[in-house]
């Protein structure tokens, strides 16, 4: 079940150091364009909407809805293959981007497209955490 998902350590690359450091403090950062204002995903110091190199971080709300998902019943991925079944999803953040992630703290059979979710962080033990999403009861939507 989802509580046993592995927490693989992300490879921190140039341009994503602050993003991953913030996860250790329970913050989900997004980059946005200082010229056209578009939120950027995946994080990169470049705006694919207008081509600007002027970008900066801001803290996302951590809320969103499930855009799509799959319940994985067979997996060859180390760690994950011992945690079947689990849910891989794209969550549409309130800020716009659709972000690949896991849905956790929920029976996989209960996940639906459109379900409100909020971010939770799973510590990797290496100074950062994975952003996953759980059902968001405060959103008050029907599930």
């Amino acid at each position: 079940m989802s509580s046993t998902l592995p927490n693989p350590v992300p490879a921190v690359s140039p341009g994503s150091e602050e993003f991953w450091a913030a996860t250790a403090e329970g913050k989900l950062l997004l980059r946005h364009c200082d010229d056209c204002g578009t939120p950027i995903w995946y994080p990169r110091p470049f705006c694919p909407a207008c081509g600007s190199l002027n970008t900066s971080w801001f803290e996302a709300s951590g809320r969103g809805t499930v855009y799509t998902f799959t319940v994985v019943h067979r997996s060859g991925v180390p760690g994950y293959r011992d945690a079947l079944p689990y849910v891989v999803a794209y969550v549409e953040l309130a800020e716009g981007p659709r972000v690949m992630t896991n849905i956790v703290d929920c029976d996989p059979d209960q996940v639906t497209v459109g379900m409100p979710v909020r971010v939770v962080f799973h510590d990797t033990g290496q100074g950062n955490a994975l952003y996953r999403f759980q059902p968001d009861p405060s959103a008050g939507a029907d599930r």
């Binding site: 490879a11 995946y42 994080p43 990169r44 067979r74 060859g76």
Partner: peptide, 14 residues
């Protein structure tokens, strides 16, 4: 690995 892979390789895509 390209930057997209760093953000998409964490979630058990099999």
């Amino acid at each position: 690995p390209t930057p997209d892979a760093l953000f998409e390789g964490l979630w058990g895509m099999s």
